[in-house]
Design a protein around this nucleic acid. Structure first.
Length: 272
DNA sequence: ATGCGGACCTGTTAGC
DNA sequence: TGCTAACAGGTCCGCA
């Protein structure tokens, strides 16, 4: 489900709710694992702690309490939502009950999501976070830096920009969309991109991610914001999931192909 | 080191 | 209607 814009939307929504004192009364785990076991002592360690803020690194949510950071990855179908006690659903795997009665549910049918728990501010020690690449929306992510990392790489450019060790947050939808906006075909070999191509591609990545955040993300199936509403960016997609339809820009038929096991879409008219 | 395919899960949809 | 296969937003691992 969730690429950077969806995770950022969830971050903003939860962070806002945690401005009002949010002290954990109880954490209820409904099974012993998701993709990996729940962290040891998760419920006991967080009981009585106040949720202070939510940060994001790549597609990971970082929920800060006074003494811990709960790391939450949503996998393909994970979501956090505010619920009433009578709104519990199949595939809810964790409930966080606050002292003032608010109830937060983690829901994840495919269970590709997972949690990790570290001491406050120690998230870089987590093996999940350590090796991640550039945050695309941060200034230290530059076209020359990406051009340098791309040296000698034979993989299709789409695979390269989805590699979280290179640049984070770009998943299967936004990779196709960013390549469309920058006029580069997904199958082009990474090493063939010139610095000017990287300038176009990086600015396209920033544009598509930012606009999707403004639209609260893309909902194709499961993704919802914590208030239960869908995102809106699916209405603005140029190529993703539009195989066989006509390009919104040049009316060429959108092509599709499986690349590294993932559906990939592009326009031969707009992309070279 | 790099690139690929499979594994992890459940639900939905398309095709026969 | 019912069965089967393919596919869905991500990431890690092991093999060539």
């Amino acid at each position: 489900m969730p690429e950077l814009p969806e995770v950022e939307t969830v971050r903003q929504a939860l962070d806002k709710e945690f401005q009002k004192p949010a002290v954990i009364e109880k954490i209820q785990l409904l099974r012993k694992d998701l993709r990996v076991p729940f962290p040891n002592g998760l419920a006991a360690k967080l009981r009585g702690e106040r949720l202070l803020a939510v940060r994001r690194r790549a597609k990971y949510l970082l929920l800060d309490t006074e003494n811990h950071t709960l790391i939450s990855h949503l996998g393909m179908t994970g979501s956090w939502r505010w619920v009433q006690s009578n709104e519990k659903m199949k595939h809810d795997h964790c409930y966080v009950e606050l002292q003032d009665g608010r109830l937060l549910a983690y829901h994840d049918p495919r269970r590709f999501g997972f949690f990790d728990l570290v001491s406050r501010g120690q998230e870089l020690k987590s093996s999940w976070i350590k090796h991640l690449g550039f945050e695309p929306l941060f200034p230290e992510c530059t076209a020359p830096a990406l051009h340098k990392k791309a040296k000698g790489r034979q993989v299709p450019i789409k695979n390269f920009i989805m590699d979280q060790k290179v640049i984070v947050g770009v998943g299967n939808i936004y990779a196709s969309e960013a390549l469309f906006l920058s006029g580069i075909r997904p199958l082009k070999k990474t090493l063939k991109l010139k610095l000017t191509d990287w300038e176009k591609l990086l600015s396209a990545i920033r544009k598509v991610l930012s606009e999707s955040i403004e639209n609260k993300g893309t909902t194709l199936r499961d993704y919802v914001q914590p208030d239960g509403n869908s995102g809106q960016f699916q209405q603005k997609l140029f190529v993703y999931d539009r195989g066989g339809h006509l390009c919104r820009r040049c009316h060429t038929k959108i092509r599709s192909k499986r690349l590294a096991g993932r559906s990939t879409y592009w326009c031969d008219g707009c992309q070279k």
